[in-house]
Computed example of a mutant assay.
Amino acid sequence: MGMNQRPPGIPWHRLRRFAKPAATLVALALLAVLGGIGATSLRLTATLDPASTVWDTLTAIGTLGATVIALWLALSSWRRGRDSGTRLVSAWVTETYEPVVGASHYRRLATLHVANESDEPAFDAHVSVIVGVHAVPLGPLSAPAPIAVLPPRRELTFDLSTPLRAHDDTWNPRASVSFRDRFDRWWVRDENGLLRRGGAGRWIETNDSQQMLQLGSESLENPLRVTMWFLAGLRAADRADLSNFDGFLAPEAPGWSDVNWEDLRRDTFDFQPTSMVAYPAPYIARVKLSGDVHLQGKTVSVDGLFATGGPWMFVTLTYRPERGWRVFGIGSTVQPDRILLADGTFGQPE
């Protein structure tokens, strides 16, 4: 090691996981010591003064019992203090209806709330919105995945109004959230409000009925369906060209007339859309395509860190109320500030 180099730091965040077993061992050792002292004292008292044995025995037992109770209360208090922050992390969905100015109907406003009311931050939070009679998980929708840090005593909100229009049964929307605490432990607050320890994310098989519910409605209000129709048009004919995609492409996106459709068809042939759509900004959707054929028909569990795989491609779509979703681009991700929306998009009543 050179003169100007620092020795590697102690990984305190990893040592914290040993705090509980260490505290338990210390408590047991202390009880053993106290028990040994008490037993020795009783034997010595019985030898020196047999008449006082009963009283001294009861006194020693009472002292030892009080010590055990005090240690148990201290350990319980320490555990409650350690876990207090995790009990104050939650996620939920609220709904309101407001009249649309210049129209004769209401607009549904749905908002996802993710809150941390504790004095400690939470990390790597993954949210999944749950809807409908069958409790269908839709993923984070407009929330980031993950939310890198949930600051202490903060509440984050995300608009779900447009994303929920892609599904018919959105009754009783609610949310689950998984997160990591400062002791590097994973927790899950499920959609019913129950808190439990979480685990590593994994790919799991899904049944056909759940897949159909996650796909959502067959309409232009659903970016996942539009993506599937776009891919079907790309692969259906012997020769793909611009005429295959009439009504599916965003006309304000530059470059559609210059696309080599045969190359695009070949490059995307093994890619299939995943079941959950991300909405990084209002009126913008992103559908992830997986090129791993072994992951088709699977979804990601919501416990702990979401599983990853690859290779990936992304279909970016834009929304306009009177026309629905259109494909803006395919390939790598496009950030919202690099996307040109149609003129007047934000002034249209929904």
Rank of each mutant, 00 (worst) to 15 (best):
M1A: 14
M1R: 12
M1Q: 09
M3P: 00
N4K: 10
P7H: 11
P8A: 13
I10Y: 09
K20C: 00
L28W: 03
A29M: 15
A32E: 08
A39M: 13
T40N: 05
T40H: 14
L42F: 10
R43W: 10
W55K: 09
D56Q: 15
T63R: 12
L64V: 12
G65L: 15
S76A: 15
S76P: 00
D83F: 14
R87D: 07
Y97S: 11
E98H: 14
R108P: 05
R108H: 10
L112A: 09
A115G: 01
P121D: 12
F123S: 00
V127D: 00
S128N: 10
I130H: 01
V131T: 14
G132W: 10
P137D: 05
G139D: 08
P140F: 10
P140K: 02
P140N: 11
A145R: 13
V149A: 02
L156T: 01
P163N: 05
P163G: 05
D168Y: 07
P173H: 12
R174Q: 07
S176N: 04
V177L: 10
F179M: 06
R180D: 05
R185P: 01
W186H: 03
W186G: 01
R189N: 13
R189M: 12
G193V: 08
G201N: 03
T206R: 06
D208E: 15
Q210T: 11
Q210R: 08
G216I: 04
S217C: 01
S219Q: 11
M228T: 11
M228F: 01
M228C: 05
M228V: 12
W229T: 02
F230V: 08
D241P: 09
D241N: 15
D246H: 11
D246W: 03
G255R: 10
W256T: 03
W261N: 03
R265F: 06
T274Y: 03
M276K: 10
A278R: 15
A278K: 05
A281T: 00
Y283R: 14
H294G: 08
V300C: 07
L305R: 09
G309V: 01
P311N: 14
M313Y: 12
V315C: 03
Y319G: 05
P321S: 12
V327T: 02
V327S: 09
I330T: 02
S332V: 04
S332M: 01
A342H: 04
G347P: 10
